[in-house]
Amino acid sequence: MFKIVKREEMAEGTVILNEIEAPLIAKKAKPGQFVILKADEDGERIPLTMAETNKEKGTITIIYMVVGKSTALFRDLKVGDSFQDVIGPLGKATHLEKKGKVICVGGGTGVAVLHPITRAMKDIGNEVTCIIGARTKDLLILEEQMKAASHDLRVCTDDGSYGHHGFVTEVMKEVLDGGDIKEVVAIGPVPMMKAVSSITKEYGVPTLVSLNPIMVDGTGMCGGCRVSVGGETKFACVDGPEFDGHQVDFDELWLRLQAYMEDEKKCHQDYCTIRDAK
């Protein structure tokens, strides 16, 4: 059992932070790696990239948006409750290198995954501009943390309620036009990563994206997480989760993410109906 020692709600309760006791995983985990969590006996195995690890306390932190039954089950766990299973650390760690000027772009809960990578990028001596976005001001997460993790933080909201009025890609273009950007790291919804990658391709700037496809085991056994990268099939769980954004077939990834959409909707509705009745 993996006990929750801290729980926070963000973005008007749509995003949840859980700090979980998992000493073996905390000892090994590096930025960019993920875990698989399962709430209870009949639960689904859900992969989530870690937002934070603390070797001394033996804890890991995940930040997730409540989108279906499984994440709703996670949301309903309180401090002191436990996840039945947490498996990890899985996947390859981010390849970190001192390159000079880099941009880290995050959208939605992707910002949580981006945070440790941004901090590590800065720690090894890169000059980091960070651009984060959300639909509206109240849905923005980790602004303070991202400010501390980078040299320059730019914020965007789709509705203009805070920061730049518009998409992260618009601000990114401005920064790219400033010149001499060596790398872009983009983590967020698939359409955002696709848009970022297509722009950076024009600029010829290498771009790293972190993918979160559907998977079961996370150890290369099921092949459910296959993605096309440069025309080749890769398994996100063992070959990724990070790939060259210029090579990823985002349209295929997007379609594969919809595979169980109808099932998920029904399952989530049933869960909410039963929970509200209680």
């Binding site: 689904e44 195995r45 089950l73 079961v216 056994m221 099921c222 099932d263 399952c267 049933d270």
Partner: peptide, 21 residues
Amino acid sequence: NEYLTRANLMKAYKFPKVDTP
């Protein structure tokens, strides 16, 4: 591997009583 793991280990044949589709 995936199909049988969903059906057997995750007991997806009982979906939506269990959460794995």
